[in-house]
Design a binder for these strands. Sequence first.
DNA 1: TAGCGGGCATGACATCTGTCATGGCTTTCT
DNA 2: AGAAAGCCATGACAGATGTCATGCCCGCTA
Lengths: 201, 201
Amino acid sequence: MIRILLADDEHLIRGAMAALLSLEDDLEVVAQAATGAEALATARVVRPDVAVIDLQMPDLDGVSVAQALSSELPTCSTMIVTSHGRPGHLKRALAAGVRGFLPKTVSSDVLATVVRTVHAGGRYVDPALAAEAISAGDNPLTPREADVLELALEGAPIDEIARRASLSPGTVRNYLSSAVGKTSASNRHEAARFARARGWI
Amino acid sequence: MIRILLADDEHLIRGAMAALLSLEDDLEVVAQAATGAEALATARVVRPDVAVIDLQMPDLDGVSVAQALSSELPTCSTMIVTSHGRPGHLKRALAAGVRGFLPKTVSSDVLATVVRTVHAGGRYVDPALAAEAISAGDNPLTPREADVLELALEGAPIDEIARRASLSPGTVRNYLSSAVGKTSASNRHEAARFARARGWI
DNA sequence: TAGCGGGCATGACATCTGTCATGGCTTTCT
DNA sequence: AGAAAGCCATGACAGATGTCATGCCCGCTA
């Protein structure tokens, strides 16, 4: 019997996935969580065999949870399900020790199969997402460029970005300019959206 | 027995919701669809009592589907479930004849209850979303302002917006300036995000 | 009919942004 | 030690953007 922890902020979906997984004879949902922090806390107590975690949750990112889990509970395999799969997320997830990565468009059969696969020590990444990740290429942004671009995402003017990043406005403009050059964008807003779409920020 | 049509592009969720709803004795999922167009086509054939539709789908918007359904199949009550509920969506949905509007964070009990409610001719809107919609206030943007702001959402420069809207750059700037004034923003990008968050565009 | 609001446009002005050159500082690799 | 790369900053300049005033045309309504 494979003991599963399920984390997703959407009640309906979580309950539904639990219902689906419980239909399988060899799978058992032993715990559920609605936030990243809750998932971590629960996992420490329950020590599940497999953790199925949603990528986007109110507090902690799914990848962060996975990272914490893989160091604290090495016996627990982590897999991530997500609605909006972005290439960058996949890379970060794999780096964090995630064993499975699926979009929510898959069928329940696949989900159950992948749970078994990762529990057996295997890995599984959705083929479509994998292809995207490969074609997306590596993140060309330096850490600071990514920081600044992330602040630019909300559309704030440069002065505010500078204040929030504790940099001089001139420096911010340099980073943004460089980031714009590395994306095929014509201004920082487009660049920010582009980078976001690739999961670079 | 209430006959239900389920439309959601996310296989996993759709299947899971179907599983949940089928647990209820008086509910029966008689059809499923993965896109808006598919939902419409299926509904015409199956003529369900209640249609449970996801707001965001690849092709047709959930609200558009609801609109078509309410005119073509008046006996079919439509309800919408969504991950990212925005006030504007709620208003549009109600205007389109939708009887129920729920975020996916609700429990399956609520879902089943609301299905019964709308089938009985009632209405149900998630209280939190309703409160948001009320506090969001009405859309102060003129149609053209909304058009232009929508094009600005992707971060395009003004010249491109002007071309895409078949307006002169100066006019575009006027509309944007006016839109910025109506939001508490300091530039068009912020204004666009703001308006999007309220569901104005 | 006159007034009002909206759609569309132009011009002028101040400010914001993007770009480039330059330089100093630190860390890492060779 | 020296080269390479990243981080931070300044200054200058062109072009993009935000703001305001002004005007014309249209449809609606008092």
